[in-house]
Design a protein around this nucleic acid. Sequence first.
DNA 1: GGGATTTGACCCAG
DNA 2: CTGGGTCAAATCCC
Length: 357
Amino acid sequence: MEKRKSMEWEQETLTSELTQGKELAKQLMNCLHPSASQEKRDFLISKILFSYEKALSLLKRDVGSDGEYHIPNTMLESPTSFGNGSPMSEISDQDCKNKNVFKKRKTMPRWTEEVKVYSGTGLDGSLDDGYSWRKYGQKDILGATYPRGYYRCTHRGTQGCLATKQVQKADADPSTMVVTYRGEHTCSQVLQLARSSVLSLAKQASTGNQNATREVEKPKASEEMSFSFGAGLRVKTEDLDTREDDIFPSFSFPSTPIEPENVGDHIFCATLMENDLMDGYSPTFASPAATFEPDYLQATSSFGLGLDYVQTSESGLSEIISAPTSVTNSPIGDFGFSLDDLDFHHFENPESFAYES
DNA sequence: GGGATTTGACCCAG
DNA sequence: CTGGGTCAAATCCC
């Protein structure tokens, strides 16, 4: 049943991706004349490649018997995995009251994403990705030098948020933390994050002033987050809004303290979730992306630009974030595309793009 | 005192 | 049977 559902979804997504690729190719054609910027062309090319890459990944994707999708991080374009197979509904039901988590383990669809994060601080498991995590276990893993720490969302008890993550030092490089995110944040924290992120994006789009948004929003993200990642993570954050088009905005931002004026904007969130997250665009990229968006952003922005990733036996692809300082401070303009270039495929519904004024 | 972490035991999947 | 993931009591920390 699950499988059938996911197959249907795959087909839709596949079609969607291919169609998008086609549209992008058309756009590219329109950019062939000299007046068009090279950056824009590059951007379109990257997007086309990405679309096809994604389509291919759908074809090749291993949908395991456990219903788990193994997704390359670099494909985390849009965390709209709330579409089909989203754990959201199933999880909340089946999980909370049922104490038998082990059954859930098998039946619950989930997405495993691994991110290697350069951790200059060496603070084990203290990676602050913006969410509140509570450690609930640690285990020595066979063949691994360092133990793996298990964290779950602090709001699990109060809000039934099922997001979890695993943090482990890389064997090869102790300064690198391998963080595996699982499940989706269903706590209000993520909604607030989503809301404020999208609001900013919407404002940005409406004003066409990227820098303004950046100044208001980014600093909030990077400064208030007390990152433990060191430079590496910050970098990603900085890059963040350069590619908001690709990433689902609601999951693109690290958690930031909730601003009073932003609290209570439930309508926007609800609209967002239904119209954008649920549109089945790419179910494979759900909330997990939210938790490690910095890397995920990097992955997106690096797409087609030589990002390295390696296959892992367990969960598909591990993204390797390298050169932690190389992009720090990279100005948004470096990407050389304007909002006009952005593909707000997540906002196709005008109403969903509305925001409170 | 309350919340977070530690750690050994337990359970399930393979 | 083994290893990974989770639970929960004990402990720690603020």
